[in-house]
Design a protein around this nucleic acid. Structure first.
Lengths: 230, 230
DNA sequence: CGGTCGGTTGAAGCTAATCAATTAGAGTGG
DNA sequence: CCACTCTAATTGATTAGCTTCAACCGACCG
C-alpha cells in the first residue's frame, strides 16, 4: 500500500474522519489492481471478501434472474462500492464488471468491519454513506415503477445536460446498449425512444445528443426533485 | 413516555445496545399516537421531523410521480421506518399512509441524530439496519426489473406460503389492490395474473389462496435466494 | 478488405394498462 | 332480517408500451 493510494482513500468523505492508525490497519492486506475492460469482478452470490474502491475507469453493477440481466447502477471514480455487503458479511447481492480498463483498490471486508467497530468517525460516515446509497436505489426504484421508458430517457437527458453544464449538447458517457439496460429497456427500444423525442427537440448523432427545446422536453419528462436530484 | 413504550423500543435490535441514558434522552419529546385507517402520515417531500416506530397496525410507504402512484413497501409491527431520512436530516423521500388503525411512536429526528453521534452501539446497529434496508430495496428493484407481473405474483405466493408455515393455504395479509400496487401492476392485471396461475395449481377464494402444486409454481416462478429471501 | 459488433429499422407478437360494465361482499339503517 | 349502499374485485374489449426476431447499416479493426 503506497502513500498515494492512502491519499485516495483519505480523500473520500467515507474515510475522512478515520483515525490514522485505524486507516493504516484497515489498509493492511489491501491492494490496488488494474483490470481490463469487460472483466467480471464478482458475481452476486459470491461471499463479499472485499470492499472495492474504483480509482479509475468505470464499473457496472448488474443483476441476473431467469436468464434476464439488468444494470443496477454505474460506478464512476473515485467511489466505493458494495459497502453494505462488506459490512454485513454476506454475499454481494449484485454482480460487477468493468466497462473499461479500471483501477480498483480492494480492501478486505473483514478489515472494514473491524474498523467500523473501532472507529466512531468511520461508523458515523458509514451511516451517511449507506443512507445515501439507500436513497439512490429508492430513486431508481421509483423511476422504473412510475415512469415509462420514454420518460426515463427524457429525464436522463435532462440530468446529463445539467451535469455537463447546461450547454444543450451532451456526450453520452456510456454505450447506448448499457444506457438501455440502465434505463430498463432493450437497445431497440432505446433507439425508438430517441426517435420519439425528436419532436421535443432531441437530435442524436452517435454519442452526441442535442437538446434544442429543453422546456418542451421538460413538459414531457415531468422531472421530479425526489427522483432526479442527487 | 411510559415505561411500556420504552420496552417496545428497547426490544428492537436497532436500539438494543443503546446506553440507558442515551435512550431516555432520545425518547424525550417522543409520543405514541393512534391513527385511524387510510390516514396520510407524511408526504415524500416533507422535511423529516420524526423517526417512526410502528407499534401496531399496518403502514404503506408509497411514492408519486406524473399522476401515478405506487407502493414502495409495507411496514408491519414492530418496526421503524424512515430511518435513513431521519439520519440525513432531509425529506422523507416516500409518503406514508395507514392501511388500518395503527399505533405509532414518533421520535424527533433531531434526537435520533444526536443519539447517533453520542452512542457507539446505536451507530453500529444503524449501520446494520441501513444495510438491511438497502438490500431490501435492491431486491425490490431486481424483482420489478427482471420479472414479469405473473412471475412476481408467483414468487410472492411462494414466499407467503413459506412464511405462513408451508401449509399450501395462505391468507392474503392485504387487500388485493394494495398487493397489485406492491407488485407493480393494476388490480385488473392482478386478477388476470391469478387466473394465469390456475394451471399451476392456484385457487383463489377471497383472501384465501390455495397452492396445490408448489413444484409446478416454482418452475414458473424460478425463485431466487437473492430476491426472495430476507 | 472482410469480419465483428454496436446501432438502427421494420414487422409481428406479447404483456400490461385503460376503459367500461358487472358482480361480489361488507357494512348500514330501517 | 332484509333492502340499500359503497367499495373491492372481476371480466371483457381495446389500446399502449415494449420485446422479440430479423434484416441491414456503418464504424472500427485485424
Amino acid at each position: 500500500m503506497r502513500d498515494s493510494e492512502k491519499m485516495i482513500v483519505r480523500s473520500l468523505p467515507l474515510f475522512a474522519d478515520m483515525a490514522e492508525d485505524h486507516l493504516d490497519e484497515m489498509l493492511l492486506g489491501s491492494f490496488l489492481q488494474r483490470f481490463p475492460a469487460t472483466v467480471v469482478l464478482f458475481s452476486e452470490s459470491d461471499h463479499t471478501d472485499f470492499l472495492h474502491v474504483l480509482v479509475d475507469g468505470q464499473v457496472e453493477l448488474y443483476a441476473s434472474a431467469n436468464n434476464r440481466e439488468g444494470t443496477m447502477t454505474l460506478i464512476k471514480p473515485v467511489a466505493t462500492f458494495v459497502l453494505a455487503s462488506a459490512l454485513t458479511d454476506g454475499v454481494y447481492q449484485m454482480s460487477a464488471r468493468t466497462l473499461e480498463s479500471s483501477q480498483i483498490l480492494m480492501i478486505p471486508a473483514e478489515n472494514v468491519r473491524t474498523a467500523m467497530k473501532k472507529d466512531r468517525g468511520f461508523a458515523q460516515k458509514s451511516v451517511l454513506e449507506l443512507a445515501a446509497c439507500y436513497h439512490g436505489v429508492v430513486r431508481a426504484y421509483k423511476n422504473i415503477k412510475l415512469r415509462t421508458a420514454v420518460e426515463r430517457l427524457a429525464n436522463y437527458i435532462l440530468v446529463q445536460n445539467r451535469r455537463q453544464g447546461d450547454t444543450g449538447v451532451i456526450k453520452l458517457p456510456i454505450e447506448k446498449r448499457t444506457l438501455a439496460s440502465m434505463l430498463g429497456m432493450t437497445p431497440e427500444n432505446l433507439s425508438r425512444a430517441f426517435a420519439t423525442l425528436k419532436p421535443y427537440g432531441i437530435k442524436v448523432d452517435g454519442a452526441e445528443v442535442r437538446l434544442e427545446k429543453p422546456e418542451d422536453l421538460e413538459t414531457l419528462a415531468k422531472p421530479s426533485a425526489l427522483i432526479d436530484t442527487h
